[in-house]
């Protein structure tokens, strides 16, 4: 598979994503500069973490206007996989590809630590390698991960099973105390109604290799790759 990793000015997890997809999962990776107007030839696109445009105005607010984002919108409309991690999630929200917005963490602190997240929906292109309700240990590193949306939108997300990951305790109980940032309904990751665009605050690319002592994040990224391979095989048969 050919995985595109978008590079904005200020992205800083782009090379981690490149490393995991290329060296750990054995895929082709194309680094896509944010001025690139086309994503032709790519099977999936990653918006990596970082501080695009220095987080000026609001996180993700300026990156949303990069030329590549028109292509990302088109890519998403075609049903192809888009994963936004941390700042990438914030950009997807600002671009309107996912509903809601990020507020400053309730504690006001930049939080960089391990979190536990529960897989609330294991029937998505991003989570099918996980067991339903599996608890993953994945680190976060952000100041603005306090997800907010209006009650009607939240009810829709819940009803459509679009909340994919929720912060929880080590044994998988979703409690206010296990939410690091004040995020509404403990939301750590959510997808669009079609299920092909996922935004998540935890960093799966930082825990995808046994050498690092934690491979939980690999489940998310490998789900994407394995799903894409299956689709390609099915297309080849028909």
């Amino acid at each position: 598979m050919n995985i595109g990793v978008v590079v904005f000015p200020g992205s800083n997890c782009d090379h981690d994503c490149q490393y995991v997809f290329r060296d750990v999962l054995g895929q082709d990776v194309t680094m896509v500069w944010h001025k690139e107007p086309s994503l032709a030839g790519l099977d999936a696109v990653i918006l990596p973490g970082g501080f695009s445009y220095g987080d000026y105005l609001r996180t993700g607010a300026i990156a949303r206007f990069s030329p590549v984002m028109q292509a990302v919108k088109q890519f998403a409309t075609e049903g192809k996989l888009v994963l936004g991690i941390c700042n990438g999630f914030q950009i997807l929200l600002e671009a309107g590809l996912l509903p809601g917005a990020m507020l400053r963490n309730k504690s006001l602190h930049f939080i960089c630590r391990e979190t536990f997240v529960k897989v609330e929906n294991a029937a998505t292109p991003f989570t099918h390698a996980c067991k339903p309700s599996q608890v993953l240990k994945i680190p976060i590193a952000h100041a603005d991960g306090n997800y907010y949306t209006d009650p009607v939108t939240l009810a829709g997300l819940q009803a459509n099973a679009q909340i994919i990951l929720r912060y929880c305790t080590v044994d998988g109980t979703v409690t206010p105390g296990s939410c690091p940032n004040g995020s509404l309904d403990n939301i750590a990751g959510l997808c669009n109604a079609e299920g092909n665009v996922l935004g998540m605050m935890p960093h799966p690319e930082r825990c995808a290799e046994a050498m690092l002592g934690n491979e939980d994040g690999r489940l998310i990224l490998a789900s994407m790759v394995e799903g894409l391979k299956k689709t390609k095989r099915a297309e080849a048969v028909t």
Binding site: L57, R58, F65, A101, L103, Y148
Partner: peptide
């Protein structure tokens, strides 16, 4: 369009 995020 830019200066405010009218969701919040």
């Amino acid at each position: 369009k830019l200066l405010a995020n009218t969701i919040i």
